[in-house]
Design a protein around this nucleic acid. Structure first.
Lengths: 337, 337
DNA sequence: AAAACAAGCGCAATCGGTTGAAATTTTTAA
DNA sequence: TTAAAAATTTCAACCGATTGCGCTTGTTTT
């Protein structure tokens, strides 16, 4: 890198001290209007830009937030990043992205990385593997504000922003029942994740509301395209297969539809399917997928706003009360139900 | 943030100077083994972590790379980020993400942001709006290495990493012809983008190879789902519509298929469609989309590797020769052709 | 005319770590 | 025993910007 213009360069050329230049640049009243304009003029001429690193050191703040996320290549998460980046941008923060790739080990390394990078705060959605949260506790111990989103835990004293998974699941299953489904299967996420538990719970309660007995055999763990496709094939091959499917995400839902197509089963004629995410893909397939919109962009926005609020209220050490923000979900009815 | 353990804390507790502690921590031969172990032990005990910001200031380097990208919510770009992050991670770099949202104005601000954040290098894929590249020239003037990927320009003396768009387009159109298409339309990207020009050129040359006359009327500007859907409807409603479609990206291709479906036109029976991107979605729709894989992950990897190489060879000021790296594409044949 | 005051600017410390050179202590050789 | 050599350790400057405090000036008040 080329030599950057510093305050010292300006001071030398003008025969002033660096302190005067510094003050002149920020309109300090001690400085006479004459020197003030002279300094500013030269600064503009030389293309002076304050060295953020020096300020970072002095202020012990980087105006950067760390983002730890399972994987970017997933519509929901990229929508969230979008929301986060939007808020960060408007507040003059930068975002550093770290992917865990659903690996616990990598996630631990990521938490170290955000520490060494001295980010001001961290936004986290942890991996499917993560059972132990002590690496996040380490961040909190260092008094770095942490906000969890989507994948959250109550084991830590930290803010959370989540979609209303229970409500979304309830709406979805209720919808299937109202559309005439008698036997509804649920393709679930790992129960170690709160989203897995909440969505199962919504599924459960919607059944009960309509006096349909809950049958654990109708719940299978399948939250990826591959696992869901395999599971759907097995289930749909049986004679008395379910006539309704509620999948924990759109990929699983689409896998079910694919499997049905391959087996010559009509959607929504013979089986109906509802997904969760309202991803771009849901509107691309034919028939289009009914899905629960979890407003990833808004979720990202809210998470980032909450974090920025924490960063402002620095003196939160004593009376810290974790906040849990819930983003309402909405059922988008399309062709598969 | 809590008080972080500094080198000074260790020095005080051990009755040493900060310089000794600093050297001890990095196994400098001047320091006796005794003090060396003592320092390291205490450092481990206190959980000392070197303050990256202080090092940044001293070394005038942040071990951070800036990434300016149109939008994350796009499979191709998130695949690229994935590749970039992978390489950055392995080389102990962090990635700062800035989205332009296809806005020139925002992109200019982004270039300022990477400057103030003093990133070591920048990876750029510019917006569709961008015609003037002087904001990138400003980065180069500041001797910040810049590598362009996917959306590139020859107007700047900078490295480029692109998919072999010409080859991919040629393969796609050649494939359509071999499958029996007589009249092939092309849904193109803006000709201000090199990818737009290259893909059109590949389309053109593939036609010529088979002695099919090139007809400009068969080329429409439609590189989003919405515009493509509309254009496809218009075209397919006409009596003598084309029997083959080569779209500049998967979204456009899928839009064509959707339009065909809505008009009761069979794919691949009556018309055949080939996309470009090989996105996740291409394997989700029915029939599955034939598409040109442009290996986004590898493209990201290569771009990042190239940038890191430039960062190593700092003394490149005089004999700088821009490198253009081309990533081969591959036609993935599926159901729509 | 002397004291009080204000305006305008510079000194020096600070943030945390690194590093060439100097200073100190220890070891070795004469 | 003492000087020279070697082994350790400390000093001080530096990276770039900020800021409390003090130092000059010149002006006002009594």
């Amino acid at each position: 890198m080329k030599h950057q213009i510093t305050i010292k360069d300006i001071a030398n050329k003008l025969g002033l001290s660096t302190s005067t230049v510094s003050r002149a640049l920020k309109d300090h009243p001690d400085i006479s209007p004459k020197t003030r304009t002279a300094v500013k003029e030269l600064a503009g001429l030389l293309g002076y830009r304050p060295n953020r690193i020096a300020l970072n050191l002095r202020n012990n703040s980087t105006r950067t937030i760390g983002l730890i996320i399972p994987e970017i290549e997933h519509y929901f998460f990229s929508a969230i990043i979008n929301g986060i980046e939007e808020v960060a941008y408007k507040n003059d923060y930068s975002v550093m992205v770290f992917q865990s790739n659903e690996s616990y080990k990598r996630e631990v390394i990521n938490t170290q990385a955000v520490l060494t990078n001295r980010v001001d705060g961290v936004l986290v959605s942890f991996s499917k593997e993560t059972r132990d949260f002590s690496h996040f506790q380490r961040l909190i111990d260092n008094e770095i504000p942490v906000v969890f989103f989507d994948r959250v835990t109550d084991e830590l004293q930290a803010d959370q922003v989540v979609a209303d998974d229970y409500q979304g699941a309830f709406l979805a299953v209720n919808h299937l029942i109202e559309k005439g489904c008698k036997q509804i299967a649920h393709f679930a996420a790992p129960q170690s994740l709160a989203i897995g538990r909440s969505r199962l719970s919504g599924y459960h309660d919607a059944l009960l509301k309509h006096n349909i007995p809950y049958n654990p055999a109708q719940v299978v763990l399948a939250d990826t395209f591959e696992t869901a496709k395999k599971a759907a094939h097995e289930i749909l091959r049986k004679p008395n297969h379910p006539d309704g499917f509620f999948a924990v995400n759109d990929m699983s839902a689409i896998a079910i539809i694919k499997a049905a197509f391959e087996l010559g089963i009509k959607v929504p004629g013979e089986i109906k399917v509802v997904g969760f995410e309202n991803s771009k893909s849901s509107a691309l397939i034919e028939p289009e997928l009914t899905s629960v919109d979890q407003f990833g962009f808004d979720l990202g926005r809210e998470a980032c706003l909450l974090l920025l609020k924490r960063l402002k209220d620095v003196d939160d050490s004593s009376d810290f009360k974790p906040v849990k923000k819930v983003i309402k979900t909405r059922l988008v009815v399309r062709g598969t139900s």
